[in-house]
Amino acid sequence: MSPDDYCQQKAAQSGSSFYYSFLFLPTERRRAITALYAFCREVDDTVDEATDESVARAKLAWWRKEIGAMLAGAPTHPVTKALEPHLVPYSLDGKHLLAIVDGMEMDLNQTRYLDYPALKRYCWHVAGVVGILSASIFGATRPETLDYAERLGLAFQLTNIIRDVGEDARKGRIYLPISELQQFQVTAADILNARHSDNFEQLMAFQTERAKQAYEEAYAVLPKEDRRAQRPGLIMASIYRTLLSEIEADRFHVLEHKISLTPIRKLWLAWKTYVRG
Rank of each mutant, 00 (worst) to 15 (best):
Y19P: 12
Y116N: 01
S91E: 11
G277A: 01
S14A: 15
D52L: 11
S17Y: 15
T141G: 15
A149L: 00
E246R: 12
P3L: 06
T187I: 01
T76S: 13
L192T: 05
L267H: 13
L261R: 11
D164Q: 04
Y274M: 09
Y240M: 08
D45V: 05
R29C: 03
L152T: 00
N199F: 04
A229E: 10
V186H: 05
D147V: 11
A99C: 11
D226V: 00
P75M: 01
P232M: 10
A69I: 03
A140H: 03
E217P: 00
K81W: 03
L222G: 04
R64Q: 12
F206P: 10
R195Y: 09
V101L: 02
T34G: 14
K120R: 11
D250G: 10
A214T: 03
L71H: 10
D115R: 06
L181A: 09
E66T: 09
R227N: 00
Q182G: 05
I33Y: 14
V165K: 04
E217K: 15
A127N: 05
K10P: 01
G153Y: 07
L98T: 08
Q202P: 07
L154M: 12
M204V: 00
I239M: 12
I174F: 06
T242S: 06
L192P: 06
R231K: 11
S197E: 01
A214S: 13
H86Q: 08
R57L: 14
L98D: 10
L98R: 13
G139I: 04
Y240F: 11
A61K: 14
A140N: 00
H96D: 14
N160F: 03
P26I: 06
E42P: 04
R210N: 04
V43I: 14
Q185S: 11
L97I: 03
R228I: 00
R265W: 11
Y240L: 07
E209L: 10
K266R: 15
Q13F: 04
V101H: 01
H257D: 06
H125Q: 14
L261C: 12
K59M: 10
R241E: 08
G94F: 12
I162V: 09
V88A: 15
T111Y: 09
A32D: 06
Q183Y: 01
L222T: 07
G166P: 11
A169Q: 08
L243K: 11
E256Y: 13
H77K: 13
Y215P: 02
A237N: 02
A155C: 00
A169R: 08
P223C: 07
S136H: 15
Y113R: 09
R173M: 02
V55H: 14
N160V: 06
M104T: 07
T273F: 07
P177G: 06
W124T: 10
H257Y: 13
I259Y: 13
R112H: 14
T80N: 13
E66N: 08
E28K: 15
S197L: 02
L87G: 09
K212G: 08
A229V: 01
L181K: 05
K120I: 00
D226Y: 05
I174K: 08
Q157E: 09
H196E: 13
T76L: 05
P3M: 03
